[in-house]
Amino acid sequence: MPVRRGHVAPQNTFLDTIIRKFEGQSRKFIIANARVENCAVIYCNDGFCELCGYSRAEVMQRPCTCDFLHGPRTQRRAAAQIAQALLGAEERKVEIAFYRKDGSCFLCLVDVVPVKNEDGAVIMFILNFEVVMEKDMVGSPAHDTNHRGPPTSWLAPGRAKTFRLKLPALLALTARESSVRSGGAGGAGAPGAVVVDVDLTPAAPSSESLALDEVTAMDNHVAGLGPAEERRALVGPGSPPRSAPGQLPSPRAHSLNPDASGSSCSLARTRSRESCASVRRASSADDIEAMRAGVLPPPPRHASTGAMHPLRSGLLNSTSDSDLVRYRTISKIPQITLNFVDLKGDPFLASPTSDREIIAPKIKERTHNVTEKVTQVLSLGADVLPEYKLQAPRIHRWTILHYSPFKAVWDWLILLLVIYTAVFTPYSAAFLLKETEEGPPATECGYACQPLAVVDLIVDIMFIVDILINFRTTYVNANEEVVSHPGRIAVHYFKGWFLIDMVAAIPFDLLI
């Protein structure tokens, strides 16, 4: 008679799926529990143990900040960024110097990925580790590398530091407007667009060049630039800015003055950032001319202004700041037409079709709590990747769950009947059967004279019903998954307890 339990259901295979997918890609990662103190490590794979030199037993239950890997060259700011990422709910990448158990130093890129439950609360953290440099290539500990984003994938490793954006290309926007319009339909740009040429040739750093990471940081200074100062900065030398009595002219307006920039070969870094931020506020060169004239017309309804409409929906549905990093990277690809469009465009503009998908598509409701890094690593669709929660398995109709209350009560009843059979069957065979043979035949009273025979008949009927119930009862397979398919249940029961239950259900007393 089957006594099969499996009270692990309803099970959740999400954690096993993450481990299996990460292991298949030869990654070095740990999984931490966000619900406990210090976000203790609950799993670390073999790749991480080989990377740091510690065994799994030495890593388990330690804080996922990996303070046991810190050393003299470990930056405090990087460690603080990892700790801050564990307090938030967004994906974050941090470069930090770690030390192995043998004392060797290596520069590592740590990717902190939160995993949320159905309520939107962070319950786990996945920390992925990628070695960037070994100890002989690690720089000085005073050099802070965590304020910069990861290198873009479309640049060669040897040319990542030679990417320079020439400031004269930004200063000569109005001069290039006529050349853009003359391109017409034969050019790649839309009317009114501004073409910015980027020099990728390796050259020595000069005062006129600005690194790509500095251009990325310009967006942080746009908020500090007032509207009046932006307007004066875009007017140009024809209309000098008016300053109040006793007030000095704005240095932001002076930063885009061609006369002032041409007199000296070098520009201050602050002026460069502010000038680029001011130019980015204009949607095209037409807006710059309109600002000089004193009238700013409404933005025209053409394809170039609607190019950012799908980007707005993608940004609203993005799951991490990696989408913004990807957008900034692609927006700086050289030799393309940049349409400086305000994100607050007309909502009635139709979304044009684009061959290049900048932001990841909208994630469906079932995966809105899973970050983009987890979705990318697992390579699963929205119909396959579940949320991290207890999910009731989908069972067929008329199927009994093996952990249901009805099955528990039924098993206790069958257990009592088995005990009765084990006690009274030998007793009936030894004593009652002998008395029946010696006594007179009682054929007239039937079952009324033999109450134990009636009980034995009921017990046999219950055993037959138990066999039928076992054909529709779920079970737990070797992978700790609840199986509810009727065919698989029948095959599993035939290979197991079916023969024993059938022999126990045969009414031998009635056959004798």
Rank of each mutant, 00 (worst) to 15 (best):
G183C: 06
R159N: 07
T305H: 12
S153N: 08
V112L: 09
D286E: 14
R181A: 14
Q335T: 11
V59E: 01
D111K: 08
D111F: 05
S55H: 07
E357D: 10
Q335G: 14
E130H: 07
E50S: 06
L311G: 11
K101D: 01
R100H: 14
H7A: 08
V132F: 15
S263R: 09
M60D: 01
R77W: 13
A85V: 01
G71R: 01
P72N: 03
A211V: 13
R76G: 13
E177M: 06
T13N: 09
A211L: 12
G71K: 01
A350V: 05
D102Y: 01
R100K: 15
D136G: 06
E91R: 14
D136H: 03
E95N: 08
D46P: 06
E208W: 03
G186N: 07
I82R: 01
P310Q: 07
A282N: 14
E95T: 08
D287A: 05
N369C: 12
P297I: 11
G262M: 14
S243G: 13
T216L: 09
C108T: 11
A83Q: 03
K373I: 10
L349H: 08
Q84Y: 03
C108M: 01
L267R: 06
T270E: 13
C105E: 14
A190H: 06
T270F: 14
Q81G: 11
R159F: 12
G189R: 14
G238M: 08
T17D: 08
R280T: 13
L171C: 12
R27W: 10
P150Q: 14
E289Q: 06
G226T: 07
C39A: 14
L165C: 11
V138N: 06
S284M: 09
S275P: 14
C49F: 01
T353H: 07
D102E: 07
E208S: 06
N146K: 06
V112E: 01
H221L: 10
E177H: 13
D46T: 06
C105K: 05
E118C: 06
C276K: 07
N257W: 12
L385S: 09
R62Y: 09
G184L: 07
L15E: 01
E90G: 08
P298Y: 01
P386H: 03
P72S: 05
S182R: 14
E118Q: 10
R176I: 01
C39L: 14
Q376T: 04
R92F: 01
R76C: 15
G53T: 01
S55A: 06
S250C: 15
S179N: 09
A277K: 14
L15P: 05
P352N: 07
A156S: 12
D67M: 09
L167V: 09
S261L: 07
R100F: 01
L107W: 08
A223I: 13
A85P: 01
T152N: 03
T375A: 06
V374F: 11
E134R: 14
D111C: 05
I358D: 15
E91H: 11
F29P: 01
L170K: 11
S304F: 08
Y43Q: 01
Y43K: 01
A79K: 08
E357S: 12
A223W: 05
Q247K: 06
F129Q: 01
F348L: 07
D102S: 06
A293K: 15
R301Y: 09
V113C: 12
F29E: 01
A260Y: 14
F163Y: 07
A228Y: 06
F348I: 13
L212S: 05
L109R: 09
V132P: 15
D197G: 01
L170D: 14
I333R: 15
S178W: 03
V36W: 06
E130M: 09
A244W: 12
V122M: 09
S179C: 07
F14L: 07
E214L: 07
D136C: 08
L256Q: 06
N45C: 04
S255C: 05
P72C: 02
V384I: 07
P205V: 06
T270V: 13
P386I: 01
R366Q: 06
M137Y: 09
R269P: 14
V279D: 14
Q61M: 09
P352L: 13
A34T: 07
V59D: 01
A223G: 08
A244R: 12
L212K: 06
V196I: 06
A142S: 11
E365H: 08
T216F: 06
K373V: 12
E372Y: 04
D287W: 09
V279I: 14
L315F: 07
R164Y: 06
E91A: 10
V377W: 04
S209E: 08
C44N: 01
A89H: 07
F48Y: 01
S255E: 13
R328L: 04
I123Q: 10
A244M: 11
G238T: 03
A268I: 14
V215Y: 12
E365T: 11
V36S: 15
T270P: 09
V112C: 06
R56W: 01
S104M: 06
I330S: 07
S278E: 11
R62C: 07
S179I: 12
R4S: 14
G24S: 13
V222F: 15
A32P: 01
R73Y: 15
A142Y: 05
H302K: 14
V377H: 04
V222W: 09
S250L: 01
L380Y: 03
S272V: 05
A307F: 13
R273Q: 08
S278A: 15
F22R: 05
S261C: 07
A360S: 04
S178T: 10
K161N: 14
V112Q: 01
V370F: 15
A307L: 12
L324E: 13
R35G: 11
R328S: 14
R100Y: 01
C108K: 01
S243N: 09
T145Y: 15
E134H: 14
T367W: 15
Q61F: 10
D213Y: 03
H254P: 12
L51W: 04
V8D: 15
K116A: 08
A307M: 12
I358H: 11
Y99C: 01
D197A: 01
G88A: 13
V110W: 01
E365F: 09
A360Y: 14
A142M: 09
P168A: 07
K373A: 12
P352K: 03
Y43H: 02
E214F: 15
P168R: 08
P361R: 15
E91Q: 08
L378H: 01
E230L: 05
Q25F: 06
T17L: 13
F14R: 11
T329L: 08
S351G: 08
P202A: 06
R100I: 01
S26T: 06
S250T: 07
P386C: 02
Q247P: 15
